[in-house]
Structure formats: C-alpha cells, structure tokens
Design a protein around this nucleic acid. Sequence first.
DNA 1: GACTATAGTGCAATCGATTGCATTTCGCAC
DNA 2: GTGCGAAATGCAATCGATTGCACTATAGTC
Lengths: 335, 335
Amino acid sequence: MAKRITMAELARAANVDTSTVSRALNDSSLVKEETKRHILNIASDLGYVIHASARNLRRQSSETIGLVIPLVPESGQTISDPFFLEMVGAVAHAASQEGYDLIVNVPSAEQQDGAEQRLLQTGRADGLIIIGQAGRTEFLNKLGKLAERVVVWGGSVPEANYTVVGSDNVRGGELAVEHLLNRGRERVLFVGDSALPEVQLRYEGLKKAHRVAGLEHDADLILPEGFGGKSTFTDLQRVLDSGLEFDAVFAASDVLAITAIHSLQAYGKHVPGDVSVVGYDNIGQASIMTPALTTIDQHIADGGRIMVELLLRKLAGTDVRSRTNSTELVIRDST
Amino acid sequence: MAKRITMAELARAANVDTSTVSRALNDSSLVKEETKRHILNIASDLGYVIHASARNLRRQSSETIGLVIPLVPESGQTISDPFFLEMVGAVAHAASQEGYDLIVNVPSAEQQDGAEQRLLQTGRADGLIIIGQAGRTEFLNKLGKLAERVVVWGGSVPEANYTVVGSDNVRGGELAVEHLLNRGRERVLFVGDSALPEVQLRYEGLKKAHRVAGLEHDADLILPEGFGGKSTFTDLQRVLDSGLEFDAVFAASDVLAITAIHSLQAYGKHVPGDVSVVGYDNIGQASIMTPALTTIDQHIADGGRIMVELLLRKLAGTDVRSRTNSTELVIRDST
DNA sequence: GACTATAGTGCAATCGATTGCATTTCGCAC
DNA sequence: GTGCGAAATGCAATCGATTGCACTATAGTC
C-alpha cells in the first residue's frame, strides 16, 4: 500500500497546477471535463488521498460531529449503560450515513464542561451532540454562540435556549401507568430519581395518569434510584421487607425495571402475577428476557438520527426548533 | 463565550512571538518560567484554544485513534449488538484516559476496506482498532505498512501479520463445556456459526473438553447461527420439534444464549432443570436476567484497554506482539 | 483580421501552528 | 569595560490544501 502522496505530487504527475487538481477533485465546473477525468485517473493510480487536516485548516471545518456523553457519576451511570450504548450506535450510524465522522467523547467528571468547548473550539468537531443535561442546564445556557452548533438529548426544559431532542417523557410515563391502572393495578411503585429532569417528567406522567383515572398517587410509593441501579436490588428488598404494599412497578429505565424484576422474583414475588412491571427505553434486551418486558419505547435509533439531522441543519444555518419525539407503549409479558 | 482566538493574537497580547507562545504552551524548556506563566495567564484570560487541524497538519499526527466496526451483514450483526457496544464503551474510555480522541466508524458493506485506509491515510486517525476480522484476513494482511498502525480484535489467526488482540477462544469454549460435562450433562448443543473464526475456535474448545472427558461430540448437535440471533428463536424451536435430544446448550455469544433460553422456556423446557445453558461474552445483562446466565467472561473492558495500549505502543515505534487474554468461567443460575 | 466575451488554468496568499536557525539578552569572568 | 558562552526569543519556512484574482487560450461577432 503506497505511502502518502501529496497534492503537489499529483499535480506534477498530471502536468497541472495544484489549484486545478483541487478543483477537479471537488468537481468544480471551472475545470474541463476531460482534465477532470485525466486528474481523477492519475489520482486513483497513485492512490492519492486528501490530507484531512490540511483541508480542514483551510476550510475551517472538519466534517466531524462530536458525541459527548457526560456521565453523572452520582446518578450511577456508566458508559456501559445499554441506553447510552444504543444511542452511540444510532448516532454513529446516522452520522456515517451523512458522510460525517463521529468523535465519541466520554469526559470524566473533572473534564466536564471543558470537553464540549475543547471539541468545538479546537475545530475538531463542527457540531456537538450531547447526551443528557442533568444538572448542567446553566452550563448549556451559557454556551452562547456555541449553542448554534449543539444539539442536546434530554427532557425538554422550558428555559433552554439550546436545541433539545428527546422523547415525550410525560406522555411516556402516562402511557405506562395508564396501562397499569387499566390492568386493574392500584398501587404503583415508582422507581427512579426525580432529581434527573427526564425522570421528573416521567413521574409527572405517572401522576397525570392517576389524575385522569380519578386517583391520587401515594407519595410513599417512590423509590429514588439513579440510573445505574447498583443498589436497586437490595433497596427493593428492603421495601418489600418494610411491608409497603404495591402491585405494580413503573421504573424510569429498563435497567431499573430488569433489576426490579430480578429482585421481586428473588423475594418470591411473581411477575406479572403478583406485581406488574413497566420499564422505560425499550433497550434490546427488553424483548429477549423472561418475562419479556413491557416498556415505553422512546425510539432510540430514530432519536439518534433526528439529532444528527437537526445538527446538520443548524450547521447549515437553518433555524431549528427543539423537538419531542413520540413514545409508544410496548406491551409484553411483564404486565 | 468568546470566539476563536488565534495564536498570533495571543502572541500580540503577550508581546512575544508566536514561536514563544507555541513553546510555552508545549512547556518547552527553552522558555523562561516567568514568560511561560505570563503567556499561560493571558491565554486563559482570552480563552485561547489551539486549533487542532493546524497543529495536526504541522505535526503530521492527529492525537486520534479510529475504531472501525465493520459489520458482517450476513452474520446478522448490527451495531446495537451489546458486545460491540460494550467494546465501544471500553475503547472510548481507555482512549480518553490516554488523552486521545476516538473516531468511531461503522462502515456499511460497500465501504468495507476503504474505510480503514481513508481514516489512516487522510490523517484523521494516527492508528486504528478494528473489531473483528471475519472474512477479511487477506485484506488485513495486505495492509502492508499500514499494519504498523493497526490493532485488530478477534481470534488469533496464525497467518496474521498484523497485531491481534482477543480472548483465548479455545480455552473459553473448553471451560464452558468442561463445566457442563462436570455437571453431568452429556449432549451439548452448540449454537453458533463456525464460519466465523472466533466461533470456530470456541467450537474447538468444546471438542477438546469432550476429548479430555473421554467423550466425542455428536456432530448433529450443531445449530449454526450468526451472531445476530434473529432466527435463532424459531430455529431452536424446530430443533426441539425434530426430537433431537440434548441436555445442554453452549452458545457462541450471550445474545444467542439468551435467545436460546427464551426459546427453550417458550417450549416448556426448564432452564437449568431440563437444559443447562452457557453463553459467551459476559455482557452486562447476563447478570441481571432470570435465570442469571452462566457464561465465559472475555473481559471486554480489559480488552479495549489493552488494544489502546498496544496501539499507542506501536505508534511509538515499539515492537508489539499479538496478545491473547485469558477467559474466565462465570457460574450463575443457568447451569 | 481585430476585438471581446468566456472558459480554463496558473499564481500566490492563506488557514494556524511548529521548529531549525539566527539573533538578542544576560550573567559572569577577566 | 570587554568578551564569551548560555539562555531566551524572534524570524521565516513549512505542513497540504483552497481560492480570489490575474492571465491565456478559444470561440464567436462584426
């Protein structure tokens, strides 16, 4: 495999100036068709490939989008959370479809805030997709002009002056709990930490569903768990020990739901016989577990694609509005 | 947030030449300590950030490694396969620890082969990590000089002249099946497509375990399934219908194992009562399903870290040998 | 045949940082 | 006060491509 060929060498070989080569490679109408073909042939003969940094420097762009996944350690999230990983996959796929490269960055806690600016301002990425805004809304609002090149995944926050894409968390929560209530369940344990904006909204949905059904949700029926779910198993055991009564669980994520099911079963409870469980996300494994998990599909793949599309539109200068994707109830065996 | 500041502007503000600024920022010993401090202060006041393309152009490096995940569509793989995703997470984490950016590329079938060269030769990435070599060994061997900047994940292939990192597939298969045989199981159904190198090796392990136990594996007990597992559920139902007897399943991946368990249960078989099941990978969900999956841990996170380390060492010019990571049997409830 | 648009090319500056070499500054010895 | 070596700093070329502008063929017009 040949070593790097520079454009100057290619130009010499084709007996033209580099400017002509450049235009030919960019398919400019200024170059005669015949010359173009000639240059293209020689280019492929010599195995010429453009040097990205040189072009990017001159063009002041990078044809790259950055995906930033700022973990919130206190919430117990890790990069191996299936939700994140599926999102990475979805965005990677969408970006490559659009001919963009994708830089994935998982800043550690102390790099927070700096990471985004570094990617944008060093010119490494033309635009950014940030997953999650937990506790960072002020930071995001301070982005100022940089916000023009940012799309954030998360719950829609009214005060956001940046573009947010997310699923309709309230509606999702409502669908989930409406389904449980329709099934005749009456005491729904909510598992999730409503300090996180998305979770908060999903809980709103739960309350709304109760209201619509003429019920009120018992505030005791809340088990605040981060997304990680590390301690969820034992925490739930403790709830069961306490004798608190409930006949359904609505978990703020599938990982939490799966852990909850596991914990319930370990306690001798039958799912869905004794307790119905609904999750949130519809990650891949939800369908292949036993019992298959009833959950709220927030269409991660679509979400990833939409974020890429919106970002590219923003970069092109189009004005773009925040967007809320619809959610869908997927009924399986856990309810 | 300020707009881009160029190094020349920073130099002017600090009353020095750009060369001094450059050296100061790179902490060169040629610059007086006091001058360094002065420049660093002004730099942070002005919010200066270096322009990556410019530096990369000059330095002929990118401080970026590329992660290429060439899907083999015939094998039913998708980017959302938990194994890939966990690998992405592991590599992303390791790369960022080392101060490298990570470009993730998922070439579609027709981009195959071209993607790697593009990333390297355009200077977008200094080195490459390629996940999986299925059916591409000749291509990889043809990389020639480029191979110096590539590390591949996969089964160790004797004829490879590139660096391969992978788990000890033979030993893994052996451990899994040895465990089943120790548990008194006698007829082990192998689920996996041995056209894929790793799977082939795992199957070797199965045979080896039989040999050690003085048994021979019945060649009928093979269900060739790609990694995707789309049709695995129904294929296994068909096997059950056929009356073929087996009391254990060794699946070439956890996804396959999970699907198999689901299929068995749907058929009324009890796991592990009627059939014991062992998977391969130890993906996150293996531990939180019911029954929790006995599986071979191939330490994905370690693998990702090791690949990054080896790649960086190669880039630094050190000679590096291929590496086989140890595997470990994780016993849970499915056996 | 001279003249003017127009299509094609080439020239040279430029993007922003790095680095070999030349130059200045400084401290110190005589 | 001069000289000299070492320590700091500046100058200018360079990395590889893009692009505004100047220039030269070419075709078409009268």
